[in-house]
Amino acid sequence: MRYREFLRFRLKDIVPDEVILPAGFHVVGYVALVRLNSELMKYASSVGEATLDYDHRLRSVAVRTGPTKGIERKPAYMVVAGSNDTTTIHTENGVHFKLDPIRVTFSGGNKGERIGMSKRVEAGECVVDMFSCVGQFALHVAKRNEVDVIAIEINPEAYRFLVENIRINELEHKVSAVLGDCRVVHPTHVANRIIMGYLHNTEQFLPHALDTLVEKGGTIHMHKATSDKSLQESITSITRTCKERGFVSDIEVRKIKNYSPGVSHLVFDICVSLK
């Protein structure tokens, strides 16, 4: 039985028929993350208990209470059923992530991009992950390739999980973790490839990414939430910033997923070389 049908059956005496129930939920380890509309929030605990019964592998259910905030990317969730201990192990294509998904961000919708990125990297490269969080990109890249990875993270709690995940995956010889604002702590002229997995105002970080590349240039994968109307404006801005740093740029744009109405999660693959 599908999740929405299961909820409708289980909650038929609790939730009015006209209230729209969620069609699914996101699973991180043993934790279910559910988005409820405003009408459903009053029934959150009932939805949570039903969700635990729907999937017996789950130990906790949390509902989203607001948007992810700030450069530290702090999610807003509230546990409504099951255990309040939401630290878990999430395994993705052989890579193990220890994290607390209600305290640090982890998007299941980006799984394909994370795995795909590990296939784009070439042996011998130095890769800098400027927004590493718990290592979502950095560990996939290091697990599949003979590379050196520098993983930068500003959120102290995410950084703590990042360091532990490097150890859990036995990648200490490939991945170095750095705590701090990537605009301040980034190395200079070392990277062949840079991952910028941050969606908001990402272009303000681009000059720092360019300074991190080796002097002859390299490739930057810049994520950004972009509306259809502003796509060309973003491309023009990227081209201008690269030119100001003495680089010629070749830009390809890929869509990862819908982000919100009229806005897409895009990746700008920026290959730069000296003029």
Rank of each mutant, 00 (worst) to 15 (best):
E252P: 04
V149C: 02
T87E: 13
D211P: 00
L52H: 07
K12M: 09
S234I: 03
A44I: 01
I166P: 01
D250Y: 12
V128C: 03
Y159N: 08
E233V: 09
P187E: 05
H223Y: 13
H56M: 15
A177K: 04
F97T: 02
D148I: 15
S264M: 09
A32Q: 11
K255Q: 13
S273G: 11
F161G: 04
A225I: 02
V163D: 06
N155T: 04
A23H: 15
H223F: 07
V27H: 04
S273I: 12
V163M: 06
I71R: 09
P16D: 13
V178F: 04
E170T: 02
A191D: 13
S45M: 14
V184Y: 11
P187N: 06
E252D: 12
D148T: 15
V141T: 12
G82S: 11
V272I: 02
K224R: 14
T51S: 05
M41L: 15
G112L: 12
V163L: 10
D85L: 13
L58N: 01
C242K: 02
H56N: 14
R73H: 04
I235A: 03
H90G: 03
V121K: 09
R245L: 10
A50Y: 06
T212V: 01
A76K: 11
T86N: 11
C271E: 13
V178P: 05
P22N: 01
R240S: 15
F205P: 00
N192Y: 02
F247M: 08
E49N: 11
G197T: 02
A62R: 01
T212P: 00
E252I: 09
E113Q: 12
R64Q: 12
E39L: 14
G24D: 14
N155I: 04
E122I: 07
V28I: 13
V27K: 15
Y198P: 01
M222R: 03
N169E: 02
F161I: 02
R120C: 10
T88R: 11
I102P: 00
A76H: 06
F131P: 05
D53K: 15
Y77M: 01
P22R: 01
V190F: 05
D181S: 07
R57F: 14
V95P: 00
H200Q: 13
D269N: 09
E146W: 09
V141W: 08
G24Q: 08
P16I: 08
H26G: 09
G70I: 01
D17R: 14
T65L: 10
R35D: 07
G108Q: 11
S227C: 01
E125N: 11
E5Y: 03
R59K: 14
V27I: 12
Y3D: 07
K143S: 13
V267H: 05
I256M: 04
V28E: 02
Y198N: 05
E244M: 04
A225D: 10
